[in-house]
């Protein structure tokens, strides 16, 4: 766990809409919305550099200063651009330090599985767990060792040992990671067919009229 609180300075956005949001982004800021605790939502703009730095250092909880007040805000959602590179918007939710919240914690699989030495393939099925914990206890990530995984072995959500005070929300039977022998790829027959020199056929057309037997006879 990392130091959880970081102070950010924000400004209230008075002009709303996509056009004004684009201008906010051009000035090196990120549009944000603050909501929660039954209060009116507020539109803010955060400094992009400070916010992204904070996220990279594992912060989820921010002390945001705006309009002469400071609020404790938790990152609820982040929107990225079409390339997934740049943050274009963020949702921040008002929280108390004693409040329990449901969050997604990323899973980090560590080690080389024993089965991989026998040709096993490690398949990740889920890369995060939904957990419930107090705001101050949100883990940056959950480390899972996969060293002991042999071929045919798997790790489920119920197998993860969570620290005290953290409750699992994800289905305990959910499969997280498994090690298995690679299946024969479906494309292999296609390669064989190509070698045999079979020409690709055109697809079946659903709406195409098929000549009836009676029509054929009349034509003859």
């Amino acid at each position: 766990m990392v130091a959880k609180e970081l102070v950010l300075k924000a400004e209230l956005r008075k002009k709303l809409g996509s056009k004004h949001s684009a201008k906010v982004r051009q000035s090196g800021k990120i549009p944000a919305v603050v909501y929660g605790h039954g209060q009116e939502p507020e539109m803010l703009s955060l400094d992009e550099h400070d916010f992204v730095e904070g996220l990279h250092h594992g912060h989820r909880l921010f002390d945001v200063q705006f309009e002469g007040k400071t609020e404790k805000l938790l990152v609820k959602d982040i929107q990225y651009d079409h390339l997934g590179k740049k943050i274009i918007h963020t949702d921040l939710i008002r929280v108390d330090l004693t409040e329990r919240v449901e969050v997604e914690a990323p899973l980090i699989f560590k080690g080389t599985p024993a089965g991989s030495h026998e040709g096993g393939l490690l398949e990740e099925h889920l890369d995060h767990l939904e957990i419930e914990c107090t705001v101050t206890e949100i883990p940056e990530a959950i480390d899972v060792s996969v060293k002991h995984l042999g071929i045919g072995d798997s790790i489920h959500a119920r197998d993860i040992k969570l620290p005290d005070g953290i409750k699992l929300i994800t289905d305990p039977d959910a499969l997280l990671i498994s090690c298995r022998l690679p299946a024969v790829t479906a494309a292999a027959p296609a390669e064989e067919a190509a070698e045999e020199g079979e020409e690709p056929t055109s697809p079946e057309v659903i709406t195409e009229r098929k000549p009836k037997e009676g029509e054929e006879e009349s034509e003859k």
Binding site: A190, A193, S202, I206, E208
Partner: peptide
């Protein structure tokens, strides 16, 4: 063999 649909509504 290049990929193509198996069934289409219109060719």
């Amino acid at each position: 063999m290049a990929l193509m649909p198996k069934r289409v509504k219109y060719r």
